[in-house]
Design a protein around this nucleic acid. Sequence first.
DNA 1: ACGGCAGGGTGACATTTGTCACCCGAGACC
DNA 2: GGTCTCGGGTGACAAATGTCACCCTGCCGT
Lengths: 200, 200
Amino acid sequence: MIRILLAEDQSLLRGALATLLSLESDMEVIGQANDGLEALDQVRELKPDILVSDIEMPGLSGIDLASKVKAEKLETRVLIVTTFSRPGYLKRALEAGVNGYVLKDTPSEELADAVRQVAAGRMAIDAELSRAAWSTPDPLSEREREVLRRAELGEMNKQIAAALNLSPGTVRNYLAEAMQKLGASNRVEACRIARQSGWL
Amino acid sequence: MIRILLAEDQSLLRGALATLLSLESDMEVIGQANDGLEALDQVRELKPDILVSDIEMPGLSGIDLASKVKAEKLETRVLIVTTFSRPGYLKRALEAGVNGYVLKDTPSEELADAVRQVAAGRMAIDAELSRAAWSTPDPLSEREREVLRRAELGEMNKQIAAALNLSPGTVRNYLAEAMQKLGASNRVEACRIARQSGWL
DNA sequence: ACGGCAGGGTGACATTTGTCACCCGAGACC
DNA sequence: GGTCTCGGGTGACAAATGTCACCCTGCCGT
């Protein structure tokens, strides 16, 4: 019997997935969490065979969760279920120790199969997404990413410079380099391209 | 027996909701659609009692769907199920003729009740969201919204001016007015605030 | 009829962004 | 040891954005 913990902040989806997986004769949903911290507590306490988790949740993201499960040498395997078909996300998920990565536009019949695969020690990852993850490396340096992240929030160069202890000219240059790498004409385009590609 | 059509581009959620609603003895899921146009075709053909639909879908949004169902005097009632807790969205949904509006962080047990309410001719709307929808009117004019929408996509003032047959000075002024109304310091902040409030 | 208001529309000027040329240190390679 | 590349960092100048004052039309209330 595969013992499953569900972590998803949308309770409609969480409840529906709990119902769906409970219908499988070899699966039991033993817990549900509304956010990442609650999920971590329940992983420690219930020691499920598998954690099925969204990426974007309050408290801790699914990727951060996976990092902590690995760091604490817990036996639970982690299957990410997410909206984001972004190679950058998958790459970071794998680096965090995730054992599966399934998109929310996967047919619901395949979720149970993915759970079985991951519970059996295998990886369950969308093959096309996996291929894309390694063919398009992240072109941004850490500084460029940080500057872009703040620009995306609407911060002006002066503010970004103050926050990062840089001069405004430096910030301008980082933005310019990021724009060039991403083929963008301005910061708004650069931010959108980076986010859509999972590099932000 | 309540005959239901589901419209949701995430097949995982769509399949899980189909399973969940099918477990109710008084409900039958008679069709599923992956996008808005497919949903409209199936509403016309199958004439379900209720259409349960996401808002953001390829082809036609759930709100556009509701408008068309109403315009074609089809008997199907529309229940929106969405992520967006935004008064602006609810307002537009109601104007489009929607009969229910449920958030995806509603407990899954309540979805069936909402379906029954809507099928019975009543409205099923989150009360708090409804209150918020009418207390904060949309401060943007149509032109301001159009200019902001394009700015959000990364278009520069010159480009926006050309697209809307205006001069760049006019575009600058519309953006400035929108920024002032929203309390933003630049276009990026203005776009974020407007989107978060459902006015974009 | 008139005044006030809102929204549509514009350009001069101040401020910010983006371009470009530049410097420095660390690491890899020959 | 020398050269090259990369990422961190900077400012002068051109281009774009944001501020501000202004005009026009239509609608509404008096």
